[in-house]
């Protein structure tokens, strides 16, 4: 039972102080979760604290390996619209 921070993390530090278990630590190339300490906030909060402040969709996975904040859920940008814009940029 632990969440995981993956490579799309932008190292903004926001999650580190809100973790009730001090399970998150600064690391290279991005922040990481100590899976031995992580409780998924059980007993402390009804929702994952790290994933409730993380601004990057997909950067934090639950214990099943699923994005807690899936594409489009935070920015409101529909994923296909984002893909379109990125493809446009690649073309230049």
């Amino acid at each position: 039972m632990a969440v995981k921070i993956i490579e799309s993390c932008v190292n903004c530090y926001a999650c580190e102080p809100v973790c009730p278990s001090q399970a998150i630590y600064e690391a290279k190339p991005h922040f990481r979760v100590n899976s031995k300490k992580c409780t998924e906030c059980e007993g402390d909060y009804p929702v994952y604290q790290c994933a409730s402040i993380c601004p990057i969709e997909g950067a934090i996975l639950n214990s099943l390996g699923e994005a807690i904040n899936p594409p489009g859920s935070l920015t409101g940008i529909p994923p296909e619209k984002m893909a379109e814009a990125m493809a446009e940029l690649q073309a230049h």
Binding site: V10, N11, C12, Y13, A14, P17, T75, G76
Partner: peptide, 15 residues
Amino acid sequence: APACNIQCHYCNRKY
């Protein structure tokens, strides 16, 4: 000050 507590539609958190 890297962390933010809100999201604005004119901002993107890569820096």
